[in-house]
Design a binder for these strands. Structure first.
Lengths: 138, 138
DNA sequence: TAATTTACCTACTATAAAGGTAGGTAGTAA
DNA sequence: TTACTACCTACCTTTATAGTAGGTAAATTA
């Protein structure tokens, strides 16, 4: 069972990459794709959603690229993943637009799924990009 | 993003159903499928893996069906889901047979994924079927 | 002005997984 | 022997993933 796809994971890595080169002005995706070993064309399809949500800003043309709109401390992992992957729902009935399950008030498993959902959301919302930049895998 | 599929969720509900009718001898899947509103044919495809792992035992023929091999306190949700869904891995590089990622010791996100994985596993391993039977959704 | 470089857009494709269904075989009890 | 059960194998449809192809539009620089 795979929880997060490349889409969200790549978005995270791009944001971290932008944060690490925050003082270099606008960063072109060509460089990031190369550094991160990610398909440029695929990256280009992921970025617009981050721009639309104002997590980053992009500028066209030579010398253009992307730039963060906040400091690394102000990005949570949860926010970025929710944006790129869609909301986290451990099971279908917990999705926002889920059709009401007629079993829900007798369902023995519902409270457990709900608690798991909260656990995951709270953790991911508590981690910032700034913290990820410091991690050293020791 | 959906984390758990019907396969694991149905398995959980069947085990709970068996636990609730534990004193009725062997329980036929026809009844469980009806009670739980799950396709019988699909259930029949899920059960053998639970038998093979000795979580339940099945008996053929008239009056046959399935029965738990332990008390409800001795089943953890994690065990059942791992068996039916495969191991939990929030991201691909955390899977058991993952091909080694050459970025793993410079990867800024790896420790976070790892911690999330532990969080989920520890929680699901801490919940028992007996506890689920008591939950009342209030 | 022309060439270059970038973001951004739309359509397509290949592969895999999810969630089954169909049609059986084999064991067991009444 | 009949009815009922677990269990097995082969299909099928739909959806998501992880891209690729081939552009257009904006901005910079020569």
């Amino acid at each position: 069972m795979m929880m997060f796809s490349t889409r969200g994971r790549y978005a995270l890595r791009v944001i971290i990459d932008l944060a690490e080169h925050n003082d270099c002005g606008y960063i072109a995706m060509k460089q990031v794709a190369e550094r991160q070993n990610i398909s440029l064309k695929y990256l280009e399809r992921i970025m617009p959603s981050l721009v639309k949500a104002r997590l980053i800003e992009g500028i066209h043309g030579k010398g253009g690229g992307y730039r963060l709109t906040r400091t690394p401390e102000e990005y949570s992992v949860g926010e970025i993943l929710r944006l790129t992957e869609g909301e986290f729902a451990t099971v279908a009935c917990l999705e926002c637009n889920a059709e009401p399950c007629e079993r829900s008030n007798v369902c023995r498993t519902y409270p457990m799924w709900n608690k798991l959902n909260d656990l995951i959301n709270n953790y991911l919302d508590s981690v910032t990009i700034a913290e990820l930049m410091k991690s050293d895998n020791k």
